[in-house]
Amino acid sequence: MLYPINVQIQDRNVVVIGGGKVAQRKVFGLLEAGAKVKVVSPEITSDLLRLSETGEISWRPEPYGKENLEGALLIIAATNDRETNLAVKRDAAPYQLVNLADDPDESDFQVPSVMKRGKLTVAVSTSGASPVLAKKICTQLEEMYDEQYESYLDFLASSRKEIKASVKDELVKRKLLTTIADESFLKESFREERFARLLEETISEEGR
């Protein structure tokens, strides 16, 4: 049974074993999350080579060895050799989490398909049953949660800070947070002005 979490890997060490297209996709996702990525593979794709040349990743042009795993929080084994991938799993320390790109059942964690709209992140996993279906569902979600959600989430984040700083009563706080999460605020062209009036009225009532 998997336990779904979002992991903070900003500036954390992650090792990717393998240098092909699958490894490349994993590296791009890791870099987007701010990880420090080391790739271990005798050969790598042209895109990974470019990242290495610009210093965005470190590349060890050598066959896999157990020493390559030292200091890594997450490890991704994405070679085209199953025995090598399994060796990575065996060699990892108990505190290290390993993903085998070709074997979700043997992995400590799985990388879901992801749909992002600014601060909104929706992850879809089929527990390895069908990555194709997971991507299809993400495509459907992209249509459901369009670009307007990016500015809406920014609005919710800033408004939440204002509510927590300005309103003392916990019940009133929850009521306001529920109100701005209503669909009417999503579609409101002047949501900031509407919220400012609402907050001002609330603070005024609290002061009475």
Rank of each mutant, 00 (worst) to 15 (best):
T45V: 10
T45E: 07
L48C: 10
R50M: 14
T54D: 10
I57G: 02
R60D: 12
P61C: 10
P61E: 06
E62P: 00
P63D: 12
Y64H: 09
K66Y: 00
K66Q: 14
E67T: 12
E67C: 00
N68G: 15
L69I: 12
L69H: 09
E70H: 13
L73A: 11
L74K: 02
I76G: 02
A78K: 08
A78Y: 08
T79D: 00
T79L: 02
T79F: 01
N80E: 13
E83G: 08
E83P: 01
E83Y: 06
T84C: 06
N85F: 03
L86N: 05
V88Y: 03
K89E: 00
K89D: 00
R90E: 14
A92R: 05
A92W: 02
A92I: 05
P94Y: 07
P94H: 07
Q96K: 07
Q96N: 03
L97D: 00
L97Q: 08
V98C: 05
A101L: 06
D102A: 10
P104L: 06
D105N: 08
D105F: 08
D108P: 10
V111H: 01
V114N: 04
R117P: 04
G118R: 07
K119N: 12
L120G: 03
L120Y: 02
T121N: 04
V124C: 01
T126L: 02
A129Q: 09
P131A: 02
V132C: 02
L133V: 15
I137Y: 08
C138T: 12
Q140G: 15
L141N: 11
L141Q: 09
M144W: 12
Y145A: 06
D146P: 03
E147P: 07
E147D: 15
E147A: 14
Q148Y: 04
Y149Q: 05
S151P: 11
L153R: 13
L153V: 00
L153N: 07
D154M: 13
L156Q: 08
A157V: 11
A157I: 06
S158C: 09
S159G: 04
S159Q: 04
R160S: 07
K161E: 15
K161T: 15
E162N: 11
I163M: 13
